[in-house]
């Protein structure tokens, strides 16, 4: 659906995007994570044919960037970083303008559909300048969908939105995912990426890693299981360290934190060993790191030159 090969964009001496190679499948929600200035928006702009790559190649929906730009523009939707609406015009007029530019056949039908879907129908005749940030963002999402694009590029869809509006946008993205749209989601909101994305890429000028959020956690931290004991855990540390499948073990007050490859198989053995040694086990759980922890860890590992 979206493929890039060594896609590069430089501005003068500065490389904004360096040899980006990606394959995004049909119907996938793909999170593109990175700090400010990482080149995320530049990547979206290249893939939506707003700017030309310096080198490398990219295909979107089997159309080649740089050769089939009009076809790509017809078939993708983009939510830009700022909504960029015509403030003096009504919500209805804003959407109908874009529906015509996207060559939509049933303009009124599509405009009404999305205004209703986004809960803006009652305000359709109001100038957009009177809308809240959340309403403008919703309207901009509607604008990106008017022509029913198979691929949707969303650049920070929930930035500057309150939790309620963010929730609404998340639910809407979830719905789109359910309908099989391919979504390329640039975000700073790692919780958002964790919840919505099938896979995420961590990117800072060049691609750092790509995988599912779960596998990224495993790659960075491995799988860790915490055993809460009835008493100091330090006493039982040598017991677990002696077990061959325990990769690492740490005692913190009444907790034993163990790194394991396959907790489902080995947890019963550990429980038996600890109980055999006289430990009172209160409960056992997997230690779950947030995507934010993973992201920050990956960013720390980023070479200074990148």
């Amino acid at each position: 659906m979206i493929n890039t090969s060594n896609l590069t964009k430089t501005f003068g001496e500065h490389a904004a995007v360096d040899r980006l190679t990606l394959d995004i499948a049909d119907g996938e929600v793909f999170g593109f994570l990175g700090p400010n200035g990482a080149g995320k928006t530049t990547t979206i702009r290249m893939l939506t044919c707003l700017i030309a790559p310096t080198s490398g190649s990219a295909r979107v929906l089997d159309y080649e960037v740089g050769r089939d730009d009009q076809q790509i523009r017809r078939n993708v939707g983009i939510l830009t970083e700022t909504p960029g609406m015509y403030d003096r015009l009504s919500a209805y007029r804003n959407l109908s303008i874009f529906a015509r530019l996207y060559e939509v056949e049933k303009v009124d039908f599509q405009v009404e559909k999305y205004l209703k879907l986004l809960g803006l129908w009652e305000r359709r005749n109001d100038p957009v300048g009177e809308f809240s940030k959340g309403m403008r963002q919703k309207l901009a999402i509607g604008r990106a969908l008017l022509h029913e694009p198979r691929v949707l590029f969303l650049d920070e869809p929930t930035s500057a939105l309150d939790p309620e509006a963010s929730r609404l946008v998340h639910d809407f993205i979830g719905e789109l995912k359910g309908r099989g749209r391919t979504i390329f989601l640039c975000t700073h909101n790692l919780d958002e990426a964790d919840r919505l994305c099938d896979r995420v890429a961590v990117f800072k000028t060049h691609l750092r890693v790509v995988d599912t959020p779960g596998r990224l956690r495993q790659q960075v931290y491995g799988r860790q299981v915490v055993f809460h004991l009835a008493g100091p855990a330090e006493t039982f540390l040598p017991i677990v360290q002696a077990l061959p499948f325990v990769k690492a073990a740490e005692a913190k007050e009444d907790k034993l934190i163990l790194s394991l490859d396959d907790p489902e198989t080995h947890n019963p053995d550990i429980v038996r060993a600890l109980v055999g040694a006289g430990a009172g086990i209160q409960f056992v759980g997997e230690l779950r790191y947030s995507l934010e922890d993973v992201y920050l860890q990956l960013m720390k590992e980023e070479p200074a030159t990148a």
């Binding site: 044919c49 707003l50 009009q70 017809r74 830009t80 960029g84 015509y86 874009f98 530019l101």
Partner: peptide, 14 residues
């Protein structure tokens, strides 16, 4: 100034 040019240029208008 209103940042409306980017979404406009993203449409298939030449």
């Amino acid at each position: 100034m209103t940042r409306s040019l980017e979404p406009l240029l993203a449409t298939p208008i030449t």
